[in-house]
Computed example of a mutant assay.
Amino acid sequence: MIEINNLSFAYDKRTELFKNLSLSLSEGHIYGLLGKNGAGKSTLLKNMAGLAYPQKGTCLLNKANVSGRPVSVLEQLYFLSEDIYVPSFTPSQYVDNTAGFYPKFSRSDFYTYLNALDVDENAVMDKQSFGQQKKAMIAFGLATNTSLLIMDEPTNGLDIPSKVQFRKLIASVLTYERCIVISTHQVRDLDSLIDTLLILHDKEIVVNCTMDEVVEKLTFGFYTDNDGLKALYEEKDMRGTSAISENTTGRFNKVDLELLFNAIISGNKKIVELLKA
């Protein structure tokens, strides 16, 4: 699906974001891309979509170079930017003018998603709130049925009920022929949604593993008494200690994505080594 080979990208000499970054993404997965602000998450997604051009290396979608943005590539991908622009169209008018660029677009799916997200198909989009605009574009992106769906901060501007519905819809549209990549700084929005975790840190992908692999190797817990606890990483508050330990029992528990992310960006090499093993 996506093959990134030795990608190097910089806006200028002082802001090199990646150096010789390589990454493979496959169909049938929902990838969650995490990283600190300024780490280059959005830029990496734009490289995948052919909207940014690397100084070195290539990004291929089904063996075609995305940098040239040929029609054969564009009709296979949909990119939802964090900063969206909507015209003075209703969602129905937008579909009439745009859906033709996507051979697998489904109007029936589109109206189903609009209804699920509580968006009025007859309301002029640029007169609506940012959250309503975002939901209309999410519905459109899902309905394109492209093999690659890239979403940058899709839950920004969404209220809690809409975030819940968003997660349900994303889970429902994944097929063995589709790859979904979601980037967010709202780590908890990816809970129970992604199956593969990517963490971008210090110019490289330091974590690239399935959630099953995470729970096989690590244990997450909250302890009011942590005497004797052999933690790899911990955060304390007035109630107790949230900790990550090596899974030595073979028992699985729920991944605390926020705690894991904090551990990785704090420079915890032991956890990174375990996840790479």
Rank of each mutant, 00 (worst) to 15 (best):
F140D: 10
Y85L: 13
P91F: 05
M137A: 01
F79I: 02
G141N: 05
P87V: 04
T112V: 12
V86F: 03
D109R: 07
Q128E: 15
V95G: 08
T98H: 13
P91A: 06
Y111E: 14
P91Q: 08
S92I: 02
L80G: 11
K104A: 15
Y94N: 11
N122D: 12
R107C: 05
F105N: 09
F130K: 15
F89N: 14
F105E: 08
Q93I: 04
G131M: 00
Q76G: 01
D126M: 01
V95K: 13
L117P: 10
K127D: 13
S129P: 12
S81N: 06
S81K: 00
P91S: 10
V119R: 03
A123V: 05
E121P: 06
F110S: 08
E82G: 05
L80S: 11
K134R: 15
A99T: 07
L77G: 00
P87S: 07
E121F: 00
A99Y: 07
L114I: 02
N115Y: 10
R107D: 12
A136S: 15
A136D: 10
Y85V: 13
F101M: 13
N115Q: 15
P103R: 11
D109A: 12
Y94S: 08
A136P: 11
M125R: 02
N97V: 11
K134H: 11
T112Q: 15
L77W: 00
L142W: 05
G141I: 00
Q132D: 12
F79W: 04
L117N: 08
S106D: 11
L80C: 12
F105Y: 14
L114H: 02
Q132I: 14
